[in-house]
């Protein structure tokens, strides 16, 4: 059986993990490579690096970080945040990233998804969507780190992104993000039934049951950040829980 994927997400800038972690016995708690290795040992199925670096110089450290991580962690690695052109994608893939996640640039220039998918294969092109509810069963797409409302309908955009060549959708609910009261399952249900590529649920996980609920809503993968960083939930316990609910997991 294909397992549900559990994906810890690390916010990185200037080559360091931004959100603090409570991992103990690490040589350097802020080193993303160490954190990624730790997650790998704990049973993470993939790792996502979200690069929130603002400067050009900082981006080079991200490339280096990806390179160092890929030398030691042998599970899929996705990198997103601020990608601007084909060269950015190529550099990340050459450094050892398996997938890149496109957000604002994909909205501004959907043809870019197509170009990237044709050049590198759609298996490595993830389109990240930040969704905010505007009325019942309606969500808008936000870009630039959630600062700009594009007015685009999320369902329409998700379908278009797949048509342009997205191999996967990383769907973040801005309403739920940070609340710890569960993923936006209504949104997940609609998007995962409307597109035929895997959907990664993001934003809102706080308890074991929330992950199960997102599985039922149709998510193919479950992403969380601080919940894992602060060890409020450990990946092995989460997998044990999902297994007890008859959700296939990799153990």
């Amino acid at each position: 059986m294909l397992s549900i994927r559990i994906i810890p997400c690390l916010d990185v800038t200037d080559g360091r993990v931004v959100k603090g972690t409570k991992f103990v016995n690490l040589r350097d708690a802020g080193d993303p490579v160490e954190v990624a290795k730790r997650y790998n040992d704990e049973g993470a199925d993939e790792i996502v690096f979200l690069d929130i670096t603002a400067t050009h110089e900082g981006r080079d450290t991200t490339i280096d970080l990806v390179r160092r991580t890929a030398e030691q962690v042998f599970i899929p690695l996705t990198v997103g945040g601020g990608l601007r052109n084909m060269n950015d994608i190529r550099n990340l893939l050459n450094a050892g990233a398996d997938k890149v996640s496109l957000n604002s640039i994909a909205v501004k220039n959907p043809q870019f998804i197509n170009e990237a998918a044709e050049k590198f294969g759609n298996q490595c092109i993830v389109v990240a969507i930040d969704a905010k509810k505007t009325e019942d069963k309606k969500w808008n797409v936000f870009i630039n780190g959630g600062r700009i409302d594009t007015g685009l309908d999320v369902v329409k955009w998700a379908k278009d992104a797949v048509k342009f060549g997205a191999g996967e959708i990383l769907l973040t609910s801005m309403d739920k993000d940070g609340t710890k009261d569960g993923y936006d399952n209504q949104l997940l249900e609609i998007i995962s039934s409307e597109v035929n590529v895997p959907v990664i649920a993001s934003g809102g996980a706080g308890q074991l049951e929330h992950f199960f609920d997102a599985c039922k809503a149709g998510a193919s993968a479950l992403l969380a950040a601080s919940l894992f960083h602060y060890k409020e939930i450990e990946i092995k316990d989460l997998k044990q829980f999902l297994k007890s609910k008859n959700i296939p997991v990799r153990t």
Binding site: S193, V197, S220
Partner: peptide
């Protein structure tokens, strides 16, 4: 049936 996503992506036996 539309239930199985394509690509087949992830960990399988």
């Amino acid at each position: 049936d539309g239930k199985l996503k394509i690509p087949h992506m992830g960990w399988n036996n």
